[in-house]
Nucleic acid binder design. Structure first.
Lengths: 162, 162
DNA sequence: CTTGACAGGTTCTTTTTTGGAACCCATTGT
DNA sequence: ACAATGGGTTCCAAAAAAGAACCTGTCAAG
């Protein structure tokens, strides 16, 4: 399988990875969630090669995850902001962060914590069922074909569940 | 920043990406969650080059995400299984899948659905606060330095929150 | 006791992607 | 007129990926 074919796979995971499954893209998005918006600032904070950054920003913009907004005319300057689609990646960020906090932190503990404004506690995310509210884990779900399933999907492409 | 330095970054996102932030790795893990365990089966289902597959399985095993278990001696054959650490990536899989279902499905809808065994409904994951149970979104959390924070972290490395 | 068929890799060669640094362009401050 | 600033593009060398062929134990059949 080649990288450009990934977005045509009958698998939501593969399709998502066709947008964010790249070394740099998620780090760029991390900065976006930290309200970084300008080319130079991305470059300085990430230490990314300029043309790689330009490429990622273009792809994310084309994918509708970011949008360009002018913040001044003459000279025209534009900044990159998360769209609705981009903000919707927050659960992905959270789950990656929480896993890193749990499994990749050294003996000192995680470098950053997140405090939930509403309740005031340092918290992590618990994935829960949208229908009944119970916590979800790998063994509690069953995969079945959806409306966009190709005929051969039952044996071929995947979703998840252990 | 170079790829091998990523696991030493003071950022849980970067550290997580040092394990799973790769084109193929998450697709290999998708198959693991679908109970695929053998080299040949990974290869056939993914269409991945054999040495890339061997490399990813080795790295995931070294990282403690997968473990090798012999399922027969003479000839010795081993299968790859998710460890506790690997199973803990389920929230990451779910959030990626849900985003793909929502934003990358064609007009027909998503190719696969997940049904929650406990309540019987087709469901997606909602990230909720581990302390108070309320749903979390990008604007409801504040980042603060944790126990493993290096001195310069307040301005340098990131977590999230829009 | 030779042939062949697995499972599970490794080696080799050709493309793609990176990283690094230099260069370009419009505007504006001095 | 001249350097600085923001936002890129171009060029080259180095690293990683794709593809396909080749290697290695261990049975099992002829």
């Amino acid at each position: 399988m080649r990288w450009e074919e990934l977005d045509r796979e009958p698998c939501s995971l593969a399709r998502t990875l066709s947008i964010v499954g790249d070394r740099w893209t998620l780090l760029v998005l991390r900065e976006c969630f930290l309200r970084v918006r300008r080319f130079e600032e991305f470059e300085q904070r990430l230490g990314i090669a300029r043309h790689v950054l330009a490429d990622r920003l273009k792809k994310l913009t084309e994918a509708g995850v970011l949008c360009k907004k002018p913040y001044q005319e003459r000279p025209r300057r534009e900044e990159y902001r998360l769209t609705e689609k981009g903000l919707d990646l927050y659960p992905v960020m959270l789950s990656l962060l929480d896993w890193g906090d749990k499994w990749m932190a050294g003996p000192e503990g995680p470098p950053l914590l997140r405090r939930h404004n509403a309740c005031g506690h340092v918290a992590h995310a618990v994935p829960t069922c949208s229908e009944c509210g119970e916590p979800l884990d790998a063994r509690s779900m069953t995969v079945e074909p959806g409306p966009g399933a190709p005929p051969a999907i039952l044996k071929a492409a995947g979703g998840e569940t252990e």
